[in-house]
Design a protein around this nucleic acid. Sequence first.
DNA 1: AAAGAGGAT
DNA 2: ATATCCTCTTT
Length: 619
Amino acid sequence: MWKGKAKATELTEADFDDLDPVITYRHLLSHNLGVKDPLRVVALCDSDAFYAACEQVRLKVDPAIPLVVRQWDSLIAVNYPARKFGISRMDKADDALKKCPELKVVHVATYKEGEKEPGYWDKPDTKTHKVSLDHYRRESVKIYNMFKEGLPGAEIEKASIDEAFVDFTRPVREKLMERYPYLSQPPTDAPDGLDTPLPPPPPISWDGLGTVIPTTPEPTDDNNEHSSTCEDDTLATWHDVALSMAAEMMGKVRVDIHSKLGYTTSAGIGRNKFLAKLTASYRKPNSQSILRNAAIPNYLKPMPFQKIRFLGGKLGKALAEEYDVKTVGDLLTISLEEMQRKFGENSIWVYEILRGIDRSDVKEKSAITKSMLASKNLPKPIVKTSEGHHWIRVLAAELALRLNEAREASPTLWPRTIVLHIRQGYQTSRSKQAAFPFVRNVTVDIIAAAGDKLWKELVGARDGAPGSMPFKVSSVQLSFTGIESMNAAQQSIEGFFKNRGSSDAEGSNLKRKREDDTSHSMDSDQAISELPTASFTCDRCRKRIHLPEALRDISLDEDIRAEALAALRTEHSDFHLAQELSKAPDKSSGGAKFRPNTPTRKKNKQKETSGITKFFSRQ
DNA sequence: AAAGAGGAT
DNA sequence: ATATCCTCTTT
């Protein structure tokens, strides 16, 4: 074991001191050890050259054909066949074509004002079009969903458009108990009971599970025997068994993703997020690599630390310059105190990372994002308000599309604020924000109107017109922030947002909404007439009935407030109805029997529907 | 609320 | 290297 071999000149023993912890029955059987679980297993899976793969799949081209995704004159994705020609993302599209005349060049989807959907054009004009990454987002969600479905019990954190972390600890533990039932309790004669160490693990066959990173330094000249079977100098541990099980599961999903969606992925499996991420890039593309604890020191030491997540930027550079070093091994000689003195208290995080420790959690993060931003850089700065409005409309169209699409999956989503950023001249960027009203039909017009208002505050009445202050806007960004699901409301008014997007959600425009409103105005007349309160008094029980907390404090459309109130009223009267019926059970009235959870009105469609259930159901 | 920083691809 | 996107922190 490497522990014993640490040379006196190196700090390795103290540095990597938890690589082979004793694992007891208590560890195995307790469930909430979190990041301290000695059997923790985390994976990172990312899609290879994702945007390029998306286009390759979309266009059904042979994956072996060199393909790049172009954005104006530069490249934003290069698939692996194209990389063989020395093409990289830094290249200009023209240069790439020179390197490989056969190259398939796909320009990213774009759209311009008036177009409802982005489209693919050979030569879009940056003066009139903006790019859309929508297709990639959608494909990304598909992959995420395959992880969710294929890995029950695992925690999944979407890390970026093409990456997700998976915490395998729970599913691995289940598999462990299932495959080795004798682990379910310590031997009856064990002196320490639950604190007895686990028996030696069974031999592991890594066959078909991926590349196991060697425990000894990478093969150089003489040292060159590393089959992926684990005939290592280090004994396998139960953690290694855990890793192999995760590898098995991850391998299956990856194959599934490939066969169902056509994307190849690369996965890294290790004991925490940071190591998983690093391990994923060990071999690419279409690969899976496993980092055993025993392999950590030698894997980490020669690693240029600026490759490490969060050390790729400023901090990494500062460290490199301060100590004039570049590998993890170089930095291991720096004491915690020294590092903290130079780089602040927080550098304990760095100190631990260098030693393979990462306490950050894989936190279940859905594919739902907290913000949505659409932006356009203007190669030729604009000088007229009309141009500003033009671009705001384009950006608003994109946001409308994206928000409504996100609502198909999660109807309760709504953005708290809308923000407009503009850059004038060089590097001054200013912004204004405003609360975004809670509207069902988020249309281009609503967003654009909000954006225009912010523009006015930001740029003022100034215009390129003679006599007024001129301006030069070189970038416009419109975004939603604080996107949330409305869970509290959902709980208190059941089904409030249900069915949205499932039936015929597409006919959504203002006109249509008005029609709908009048169609059930019979029911809500009363409520609408006594407009903007947040509550009403029931005639029957004389009680004051309030809107749910979550709906009260937010900026609600008056329309919607009234409707919500109307729906609440209906719901409340249903309650009375239910009470009466339960006292005097219905024996008359033909076929329709009262069922507590399935009010008959739900079946009776349009006219009678007015409950809050229906509220967001169609427009 | 506004601005900025940082990071990723 | 540039355009775009996202999150978090500071003021």
